[in-house]
Design a protein around this nucleic acid. Structure first.
Lengths: 209, 209, 209, 209
DNA sequence: GACTAAGCGAGACGGTACGTCGCGTCTTAAA
DNA sequence: TTTAAGACGCGACGTACCGTCTCGCTTAGTC
């Protein structure tokens, strides 16, 4: 995306000028329309042309904000992810892991996000700019969450010391995305359960526990 | 891909008719050219038009065999995968796992296959036909290998009983593809090592071993 | 067309060799199929490809006989015209004229011939070879008929002396084709009547008659 | 053609907006290029692709205006006919007829129009839309001219009363187009002369005159 | 009763143009 | 200043037929 700034602000800071309000309104319309299109006919048929047509926003206006349809789709993804969190606080770490995994599984299989991710993954993998944004926001966020979880677990004496949070993230999310993107095996709660059940011994201080 | 026939044969069986020879020659040229293009400028700029131009094979002929550029790219992928195997026989299971993982990591980071996978993943995720072919060949192959590995390990008394080969596959490959597609973290031997080191306790009969 | 010969004959003349019979059978099938296609969906969608498909005759076989779809369509036209004649013998010349005109009008509006002519006219006008064949057969035939009619009429004392049969042909047929091709005005018996009624004074020895 | 609007005007009427100027310029370039191509290699080898290439106007832009090459060719024809008229005012009707016929003969044999007509006639005969446009403009125009001529002639007492202008048109133009399209007989002034000479008695009040 | 040659079907192929879609740029005029 | 409107050049799409060519099979009449 061209801009990730939120609190850019005009010269006067808080007092949004009229122009800025206009910008904001336009942006909302565009993002909402894009989301509808994605929900309707999938990522493959997402088109700046169609977004312009259905939203009533001129094509040139959209191009002023988003460099490409990928940029736009990513913006929607970030917009949706704004609220969502996989915040997994619980009494014990295994439960926290289960919640984190199940929340992700649910997000990917039952909301628009799964479809968007499927459509966007190739672009993220190929487009450096896109990748940068994706990693700085989404990936980093997940790693932060896992890091917190790992630290908490270690402090509680439940998790082995020296666990690499990045690797833990790979292990927790990798299998989910592998199913989402490639293997086509079911993405459901049962899967989440087995996943954590299989992984926990690898993380636990006392595997017998 | 439109056809997966292997031992089709002419009316008389082994003797390839003239038509078939011609077909085969054309097919080779197309696949090779496509591979070159993929190596050169990546999946995003793969175009049937360009393949036709550079290979000297008419566009219509290409379309007679491959329904789309995805179909074609998948064909190249399968063509490349024909030889390759991750067959990981070794004395002990941990070594086998390490080999399997490292071979996959290497394939994805050092050969064309990584780029092709990056470009193709969204299409596999979206196009039902493509997905079917991909799963019936590539995914199934990997699962078969892992199944063999797991059975061997269990028989040796190294691995826990009742391991689900599908889940094991998810755990072994998921993290690799997650790095390849999304996180952008390095895909190298060190990663392979840590991956197996982290997972082995989860698979082993006696985690202490 | 490449060949208009009928009694070409093999080495032995009258005794059609087996090969020739085969040829003839194939030719019939092709012509009949072509006619059906023309009747069905019109000249515009006449295609060698389709003729081959529906007739079961190989494309290459068709190309061995006809150089193009125009060639083929003209062959059908000549085939149909083989039987047909506008032979207009009657007691008086005005009746003969009326018959000739009405027969032509009928042919053009009620049989396949009208559609074929509509589709073929541009090709005849543009393709020299096609034109030559068309003129040597169809046009010449009509002129011969009109010539006979004019001579008979003059001999009977009904028609003016020195009438140019070619011009008479132009005058009799031109208006019909003009309606068929361009003006779209109705082609019916009423039109035929008015046409002859208007022209007769121009041809008659004694216009008052 | 898709649009026949002439005095459409922008929202404000007379002042052509910038967009409209651009449109008009593009249109001129396309029509001129098409005319050149028609003059050069004839209707048969008229191709939207080539028009685009030579004119520098994009194929898509051409398709935005003209539905097909026929549509485009017809547009050129109408464009050329815009100026031309066969208005044949003279002192006596026979001269007027001669002028009208000779002007048409000349137009068809010595200008591009003849070639265009030859190429277009089949399409006009087959394509309903095309036919409608052709008839509403060209055919109707000719009929109007002939109607005026007939009325004048009748008022002068030179022509028979009750002549059907449509039939007169058929008789005057039919033979010309018959030669142009089918018979291949010469289209020259001599022919025009004989044509009128032959027809005049059919129209005249007093054939002896 | 096998031989021979014309006729044929099958089908792969290179090629041209089609008509469509969406891209991203640019200009203009209104708000 | 920002926007809507919209014309445009461009590249690729996937399709339809073209006309050519090569390959063996069928099928008569011949030796």
């Amino acid at each position: 995306m061209q801009k990730a700034d939120a609190a850019d602000g005009g010269p006067a800071g808080a007092t949004a000028s009229g122009h800025q309000k206009r910008r904001a309104r336009t942006e909302r319309v565009v993002l909402d329309t894009t989301r509808e299109l994605l929900a309707g006919s999938g990522f493959a048929s997402l088109t700046i042309e169609r977004v312009a047509e259905r939203s009533g926003v001129a094509k040139s206006t959209i191009y002023r904000r988003y460099r490409s349809r990928n940029d736009l789709a990513l913006a929607v993804l970030l917009d949706m992810l704004g609220d969502v969190s996989t915040l997994p606080y619980a009494k014990d770490t295994q439960t926290e892991l289960t919640r984190l995994v199940n929340r992700t599984v649910d997000l990917m299989s039952n909301s628009l996000l799964g479809r968007i991710m499927q459509g966007l993954v190739s672009e993220v993998a190929a487009d450096v700019e896109l990748a940068r944004t994706y990693r700085e926001t989404v990936v980093a966020k997940r790693v932060r969450e896992v890091t917190a979880l790992v630290e908490r677990g270690t402090a509680r004496g439940e998790l082995r010391e020296g666990l690499d949070p990045e690797l833990v993230t790979d292990l927790l999310l990798g299998p989910i995305y592998y199913r989402l993107f490639l293997s086509g095996e079911p993405l459901d709660e049962a899967f989440g359960q087995s996943l954590v059940a299989a992984l926990y011994p690898a993380f636990a201080k006392d595997p017998q526990g």
